[in-house]
Structure formats: structure tokens, C-alpha cells
Design a protein around this nucleic acid. Structure first.
Length: 272
DNA sequence: GTAAACCTGGCA
DNA sequence: TGCCAGGTTTAC
């Protein structure tokens, strides 16, 4: 589910509701997520106040008043929902329940358990070691960066953009959409692109990610923000999940191929 | 590099 | 029943 725009949407929805609040109780109902929740998790959170909410790549970073960070990754199916009043009955996939002193409650739900949660001490450097630049950072991520990277790899565009070490936060939906906007096929080799191609591709990534954040992410099957609202970008998809439909730009039939084990949707006419 | 693995639910 | 899914790690 969540790529960068969805995580950012969760961050924005939760920020005004939980910033400054103190954590009163923590109930871990299931510890075997993608990485097991450590035994000390509850005691590290209990009594702390939430100082700020940030995001890096696809990680939600909940800053605590002791300078530790509560790190959340949503995997494919995770949600973190804020409830104004506490609940007592839980779904079988509600794995972590955090009660706030003011009366609210945060519930982490994740049917597939590809998500994870941990407490990180100190600064973020080691946490994000090897993670690529944010796509909206024009200094770290731009056409020249992609062009230079192309000199070091024979990989195809789809693989490169999906690689979190190259650029952080993109996933299958938005890589497909960015490649459509750039007019480039998923199987094109990065090393074969011109500087102009790379510039257009970097710009397309930024455009798609910005639009997706504006529209509060994509709810294709089950994404919800921090208060249970669906996103709106699913209505604006141009290729992802549209196999067999006609391209809005040219009318050709959208095709799907598998690249790097993931479905890649593209318009055979608009993308070359 | 490429594939298989993790896990559950929904749909053909 | 089998295949597919917004992700990431691990193992040939």
C-alpha cells in the first residue's frame, strides 16, 4: 500500500491530532511483524510525549521528548488510525494499540504483517544509511543524478526507480505513473537515456509524487490516512492497474508486462 | 541480477 | 483453487 505519498498523507493527518500528546499506555497484541517488536518497546514509549511527526522515504518518524524516534513502516497493508475515544474491541489484525493521556488512541492494523515498528535512539544517520535522496529534493535528485547513475548500471528504468538506494519512497504505482508521464518504457535501460531524457524523467517523478501528495495518496484497495479517510489519487491514475483500458492521451490499449517481478503498466504508443 | 520468501485477503 | 496485491530482505 503505502508509498511516499501515502505515508506523507498519514503524517499530515496525524500531526495536528497527536503532536504534544503524552503516551499513557501501550498494548502490543502481536509482536511478530516484519521484524519482531522488541520486549522493551512498551516501556520505551510509555510516558513519553510526541514532539513532532516527520517522514523519510516510506517511514513515518514519530519524534519523542527523550530524543528517541518511534519508527513506523506500513509494509503493504499497514494503517495507523487515530481514534478520538478509546476502543475496547479490536480487529484480529490490530497489532499495536497506544492510548494517549488526553483520551485518544492510535491503532496499528496490518493484515499481511509486512509492516514494522521500532524505537530508534539518536540521530537518523544510521537508520537511513544507504537510502537514496528524497524525490522532491531537487538538489539530491535530478536529471544529472540519474544520468550519472546510468553510467554505473545496466539496469532498466523500472528497476532503478524502484530501488530505494537510488531514490527513496517510490513504489510500483508511482514508478508506473512517472514512466508514463516521461514517455519512457519500463524496460528501457537507464544507460541508454540522454541527459534530456533523464531530466524529463526526474521532473516526471517529482510531478507525480507532488500530485499524489496533493490528492492525499491512492486508495486502490485499502489505504486510509490517519483518521480513516481514503485518498483521491486512484481516480487520476493514467496507467497503473489499467490493463486493457484505453490510454487517455492517445487511445491505445494499456499493456502490462512483468519487470523485476512486478507488474508494469504502460502505453505502447506514448511510451518508447 | 534474479528469484523466492515473508503473510493475509480478495477476486476470477 | 490459484493468482495477485502500495514492500523489502535473503538466498542462489
Amino acid at each position: 500500500m503505502p508509498e511516499l505519498p501515502e505515508v506523507e498523507t498519514v503524517r499530515r493527518s496525524l500531526e495536528p491530532r497527536i503532536t504534544g500528546h503524552r503516551i499513557e499506555a501501550v498494548d502490543v497484541r502481536r509482536r511478530d511483524l516484519r521484524w519482531p517488536i522488541v520486549d522493551e518497546f512498551e516501556e520505551r514509549l510509555r510516558g513519553r510525549s510526541i514532539r513532532a511527526l516527520e517522514r523519510r522515504a516510506k517511514y513515518l518518524l514519530i519524534r519523542l521528548d527523550d530524543d528517541a524516534t518511534w519508527v513506523v513502516h506500513f509494509g503493504m497493508s499497514g494503517t495507523l488510525l487515530f481514534h478520538e475515544s478509546r476502543r475496547e474491541r479490536f480487529d484480529k489484525h490490530d497489532h499495536v494499540v497506544v492510548d494517549l493521556a488526553a483520551g485518544g488512541q492510535l491503532v496499528f492494523n496490518d493484515p499481511r504483517r509486512f509492516g514494522s515498528m521500532s524505537i530508534h535512539e539518536g540521530d537518523d544517520a544510521q537508520l537511513f544509511e544507504g537510502v537514496g535522496p528524497e524525490p522532491l529534493d531537487e538538489v539530491g535528485f535530478n536529471g544529472e543524478y540519474l544520468f550519472a547513475h546510468g553510467k554505473r548500471t545496466s539496469r532498466v528504468l523500472k528497476d532503478v526507480l524502484m530501488d530505494q538506494r537510488v531514490v527513496a519512497g517510490l513504489g510500483n504505482i508511482y514508478v508506473n505513473e512517472a514512466l508514463f508521464l516521461a514517455g519512457l518504457r519500463p524496460r528501457r535501460a537507464l544507460r541508454r537515456l540522454t541527459r534530456d531524457d533523464c531530466e524529463r524523467l526526474a521532473q516526471s517523478v517529482r510531478t507525480i509524487i507532488s500530485e499524489a501528495i496533493e490528492h492525499r495518496g491512492s486508495s486502490i484497495s485499502d489505504f486510509l490516512d490517519g483518521v480513516g479517510r481514503m485518498g483521491g489519487y486512484q481516480w487520476r491514475r493514467r496507467v497503473y492497474g489499467r490493463e486493457g483500458e484505453s490510454c487517455a492521451a492517445c487511445g491505445s490499449t494499456i499493456k502490462v508486462i512483468v519487470v523485476g517481478q512486478r507488474s508494469s503498466f504502460y502505453c505502447p504508443t506514448c511510451q518508447r
